[in-house]
Design a protein around this nucleic acid. Structure first.
Length: 424
RNA sequence: GGAUGGGUGGCAGAGUGGUCUAAUGCGCACGCCUGGAAAGCGUGUUUGCCGCAAGGCAACCAGGGUUCGAAUCCCUGCCCAUCCGCCA
C-alpha cells in the first residue's frame, strides 16, 4: 500500500513511477484516490468541528442542570447537531473505505534504478554461474527420467487430485526430503536464519498484508466456511508473524527460513509451461524472509539473493540471475531478482527463486513497525525470496545429474542427506 | 459444538454516564545532577484531520442503539483466553 501523503504531495512522481509498469489504469487510479481523499478530509473536518461543538454544548447542559436551570433550548440544538453528525459520519466512513479499497489495488513504485521495460524479454541478466553440462548421448527430460526411475507418478497423482499434482515415490520422495533438509541446514547454520514451521492456513488479513489479496483472489485456495486460505507461499505466514507489532531497532534485521507446501490455483495458466512438474497446484518450497530497517533493506536484498544462490552453487547447478524490468515486476515489489536454474531437458532456464524487496509496501498493509533510535515509530521494510522452490530444482537436478548408463548422480553435498551417491 | 471471561497508549493496568484534558507503574529518548555511572529530578514518548504557525479537533476493537452527553449502559459482529464435549 502506498502512503496517501506521498500520493498527495508528489503526485507526478508517483504517476511517472507507476507508468513504468505499463498499466495506464494504475495512473488513473491515482486521480481517483486523490478525489476520494479530498472528499474524505472535507467530511472528516466538518465532522470533527461538529463533534467539538456537541461536546462543548453538552457540558453547558450539564452545568445548567446541576444549577437547576432549564436547558431545553440547548438540548434541541445539540439534538440537531447529532443528526448532522450521523450524516457526516456515514459520508466519512464510506469515503474512508473507498479510499482504502483503492489504495489496496495500486501496486508499489518500482525502485528508481529498476530497468525500464515492458515484458520479460527486457529483463537484464545480472550474472551467471557454472556452465551448461555437455550432453553426451540422449538427454531425457525430468518427466521421462522420473517415470523411468519411478521417482514420481503423475498419472496416479491425477487420480487423487486432478492434473497439476505430483506424487513423489520412493527415491524421488527421499530426494525431495533430502533437498529440504539440506537447504534448511544451510540457511540456519551458515546464513543465520531462524527456522520456522508456520501454519499453512491463514486468515484473510494476512493474505491482504502480503498482497495476495484482494487483487489475486482467483489464484488462491480459500476455505468457504471459515474464511481461511491455503498459503500460496510461506511468505504469508512468516512475514505476517510480527504483523501489528512494534519491533525495536536493535532486533532488526529479522531473518526467517521456513519450509512449507505452497498451494496455487494457477488459474488461466493451463498449457503454459505445464510440462511435468514445472507448474503445479501444490509444491514444496523453502522460503527466506527478512524484516529490515529501511536504511539497510537493499543490502539485505543482495545478501538474501546470494543466500539463495548458494544452494545452486553447492549443488553444482548452472544458473543465472536476472533483474525484473518495471513491466514484469510483481505487484508489491520495488525490486526483484529472479534466480533461474538451467534445465538440460527443457533446454531452458527455470525460475526457482524470486527475491524481492517490498520496502514498506507490505509493512504498511500489516501495520508492522519498529521504533527507531529517536523513539519514532516507522514502518519496517520486508523482503523475501525462495531458497529454493523444490519441483523445478528437483527437475534440474536429475536432468543435470543423469549419466550415460541412465542413472542419476547425486551431488556430493547432498549424499549424506540422501544416503546414496546415485539413483539407478 | 456448548459455557464463561475479556479487548483502554510501546507494555502492564485503573477507570461503570459530564470533572477523561484517560490515573498509576514500567520501558524508551532527551536534559539536569555526577569525576563517571546508578539513583533521583525534569521534559517528552500513538495516529489522523484543519492551520503558515501558535494551536485546535477527533480516535478507548468495529458497527449500531439509548442519551442533551458514552471508554463507561444495551445490541450485533470480529478477535483473544479459559473450561466442557469431540478428536490425532
Amino acid at each position: 500500500m502506498l502512503d496517501i501523503r506521498l500520493i498527495r504531495e508528489q503526485t507526478d512522481f508517483v504517476k511517472s513511477r507507476l507508468a513504468t509498469r505499463g498499466g495506464a489504469d494504475d495512473v488513473a487510479k491515482i486521480d481517483e484516490v486523490l478525489r476520494v481523499d479530498a472528499e474524505r478530509r472535507k467530511a472528516e473536518t466538518a465532522l470533527q468541528q461538529l463533534n467539538g461543538d456537541r461536546k462543548r454544548l453538552s457540558k453547558e447542559i450539564g452545568g445548567k442542570r446541576a444549577r437547576g436551570e432549564s436547558a431545553e433550548e440547548l438540548e434541541t440544538k445539540v439534538r440537531e447537531i447529532g443528526d448532522q453528525i450521523a450524516l457526516l459520519n456515514e459520508q466519512t466512513s464510506a469515503a474512508d473505505e473507498q479510499q482504502k479499497d483503492l489504495l489496496l489495488g495500486i501496486p508499489n513504485l518500482p525502485h528508481p534504478n529498476a530497468p525500464v521495460g515492458k515484458d520479460p524479454s527486457e529483463n537484464p541478466v545480472v550474472r551467471s554461474r557454472g556452465e551448461k553440462p555437455d550432453s553426451k548421448g540422449a538427454i531425457l527430460d525430468h518427466v521421462a527420467l522420473g517415470t523411468k526411475l519411478k521417482l514420481f507418478d503423475l498419472e496416479r497423482a491425477a487420480k487423487l487430485s486432478g492434473s497439476g499434482f505430483i506424487c513423489f515415490t520412493g527415491a524421488g520422495a527421499k530426494l525431495e526430503r533430502a533437498l529440504i533438509q539440506f537447504m534448511l541446514d544451510l540457511h540456519t547454520n551458515q546464513h543465520g536464519y531462524l527456522e520456522m514451521s508456520p501454519p499453512f492456513l491463514v486468515r484473510r488479513e494476512c493474505m491482504v498484508g502480503t498482497t495476495q489479496l484482494p487483487k489475486f483472489e482467483e489464484d488462491m485456495y480459500g476455505l468457504e466456511y471459515n474464511e481461511l486460505f491455503l498459503a500460496p507461499t510461506a511468505e504469508v505466514p512468516v512475514t505476517n508473524f510480527h504483523r501489528e507489532e512494534i519491533l525495536s531497532a536493535s532486533e532488526l534485521p529479522k531473518k526467517f527460513v521456513a519450509y512449507t507446501p505452497c498451494f496455487r490455483r494457477e488459474a488461466g495458466s493451463a498449457g503454459r509451461e505445464t510440462r511435468g512438474i514445472i507448474r503445479v497446484h501444490q509444491f514444496d518450497k523453502v522460503e527466506l524472509v527478512k524484516i529490515s530497517a529501511p536504511e539497510s533493506s537493499y543490502a539485505e536484498h543482495e545478501s538474501l539473493t546470494e543466500n539463495a544462490e548458494r544452494v545452486l552453487q553447492l549443488l553444482g547447478l548452472h544458473y543465472r540471475v536476472i533483474e525484473l524490468c518495471t513491466g514484469d515486476l510483481g505487484f508489491g515489489s520495488a525490486k526483484t531478482y529472479d534466480i533461474e536454474v538451467w534445465s538440460p531437458g527443457q533446454n531452458a532456464y527455470l525460475e526457482v527463486s524470486s527475491c524481492s524487496n517490498f520496502e514498506d509496501f507490505q509493512a504498511r498493509r500489516m501495520n508492522l513497525r519498529y521504533k527507531d533510535t529517536e523513539g519514532k515509530n516507522r514502518f519496517c521494510h520486508t523482503l523475501n525470496g525462495s531458497g529454493l522452490a523444490l519441483p523445478r530444482l528437483f527437475a534440474a537436478l536429475i536432468e543435470t545429474g543423469q549419466q550415460e548408463d541412465g542413472s542419476i548422480r547425486i551431488p556430493e553435498i547432498l549424499q549424506p542427506y540422501f544416503g546414496a551417491a546415485e539413483i539407478r
